[in-house]
Design a binder for these strands. Structure first.
Lengths: 131, 131
DNA sequence: GCTTTAATACTACAAGTGTAGTAGTTTTGT
DNA sequence: ACAAAACTACTACACTTGTAGTATTAAAGC
């Protein structure tokens, strides 16, 4: 797993691809306008996509003379990669340090806490089963 | 709370400041060499510090003709800011989505899970007390 | 068939970052 | 007192990102 780093706009674009599967550039433009409220020139998106393509993060097929792009990394991979990068850089490399920080800053409401408790129990169970 | 974004090298430098409180540039250089194994030219660090200063992230006092820098943002602030930025961008704005993701990718060992359970219980208690 | 329209290719440019060199000025060592 | 060392100031340069303009070419409308 190489380090995958996506900046803001790149992420927005990737999110469209993750949602849609395959999209042409103008489709991406529409989606961004609709869901993210970002009005970007087509040429801007073209540039972004081309750069992502050079890095192997997206790929495309041609349909007529249109480029239909698709993501080459999954959302989960990206989440893992970027989360662990943050954890490494700022939370001593330990997820638990991050979570403690979040707990301290009251980042969760009651329902979420309850839910987490359940999920943790499940994770513990799973660990036990794997032994 | 403004959005605080620190890149890799900037973070490394900030980490030294957080640890040490006040340090001169050559002190920072030594610390980075010792603890991070990064050998950087003094001028590089000077540039980085000046840029951070321009952004109001560090400040300094002069001691003789030396600049003694100190952090103007705390580590916790930075952690909060960067964590929530990641959460916003990649985890639907919900800390719990992040934590779920971490749980799914088995980012915790048994001890950590146990510890989390305790901390969550404590957080729940605290929420109750605050009512 | 000829004009819009749509699409890509190529170019551009300002900011920010990583990284450091050179020049100039104190301080220090001897 | 002078050379060497320590510091800061200024400059530089390549790379990445955000953002888009212009040029060219192909498709579609009428």
């Amino acid at each position: 797993m190489e380090k995958l780093k996506l900046d803001d706009l790149q992420l927005k674009v990737m999110q469209v691809l993750w949602r849609e599967g395959e999209v042409g550039v103008s489709g991406i433009q529409e989606q961004l306008k609709a869901k993210e409220d970002r009005e970007l020139a087509i040429t801007t998106l073209n540039t972004v996509l081309q750069r992502l393509y050079k890095r192997g993060i997206v790929n495309y097929r041609k349909e007529g003379r249109q480029y239909i792009y698709r993501a080459e990394v999954t959302e989960k991979e990206t989440q893992s990669s970027m989360a662990s990068s943050l954890i490494d850089k700022l939370f001593k490399g330990k997820s638990s340090v991050l979570v403690n920080h979040l707990l301290e800053s009251s980042a969760f409401d009651q329902d979420e806490l309850e839910d987490l408790k359940r999920k943790i129990a499940a994770a513990q169970q799973k660990k036990k089963d794997n032994e």
